[in-house]
């Protein structure tokens, strides 16, 4: 059963026909070629496919497009543009921090990890380590031992406080 759906992804409206049983993950990657969102298990066990729905991190492998119609969907492709600070192509402070700290090794968990971290920083501008650990506890990373990821989130939090919307 195909249905015409309209999704708002990264502030852009996408209208398309889609089989109703395709997950948001499949639609993002295969229909819209937003391949920044990754998949590692498709069963909700690894966090690689995390995207934001109305600002909350959710697993795109376990949600249907029809369930998120009318909601704000943000993927890694929209993260750089998500805050009005300077030019559009400027990376989000989290992205800069991930690169600088070496928080991405193979990089495969990074998109999901970054979306989770973005939601955290939107809620808590200066989270402590325990809160960061708790927030990313659904995102498996096999490379870093999470150490550099936690440091990157801390760095981004610090640089974030300098931004106008947080002062």
């Amino acid at each position: 059963m195909k249905q015409l759906l309209t999704l708002k992804i990264n502030d852009e409206k996408h209208e398309f026909w889609v089989s109703i049983h395709k997950t948001l993950l499949e639609v993002l990657r295969e229909d819209l070629h937003l391949t920044g969102t990754k998949h590692g298990c498709e069963l909700g066990e690894c966090g690689a496919c995390t995207v934001l729905i109305n600002g909350e991190p959710i697993l795109s492998c376990l949600i249907l497009p029809i369930e998120v119609q009318g909601k704000e969907i943000m993927t890694i492709e929209g993260l750089a543009h998500s805050e009005k600070h300077g030019t559009d192509c400027k990376p989000h402070p989290l992205q800069t921090a991930f690169a600088q700290q070496g928080a991405s090794q193979c990089g495969y968990c990074s998109p999901g990890m970054l979306m989770t971290a973005k939601a955290l920083l939107d809620k808590y501008s200066n989270p402590d380590r325990e809160r960061i650990r708790e927030a990313i506890s659904g995102n498996i990373c096999r490379c870093t031992g999470y150490a550099k990821i936690i440091e990157a989130v801390e760095q981004a939090a610090k640089s974030n406080t300098k931004l106008p919307q947080h002062t």
Partner: peptide
């Protein structure tokens, strides 16, 4: 990729 089997979806 593991995928869902087809179904119809209703939104009461």
């Amino acid at each position: 990729m593991l995928r869902l089997p087809p179904f119809e979806y209703y939104t009461p």
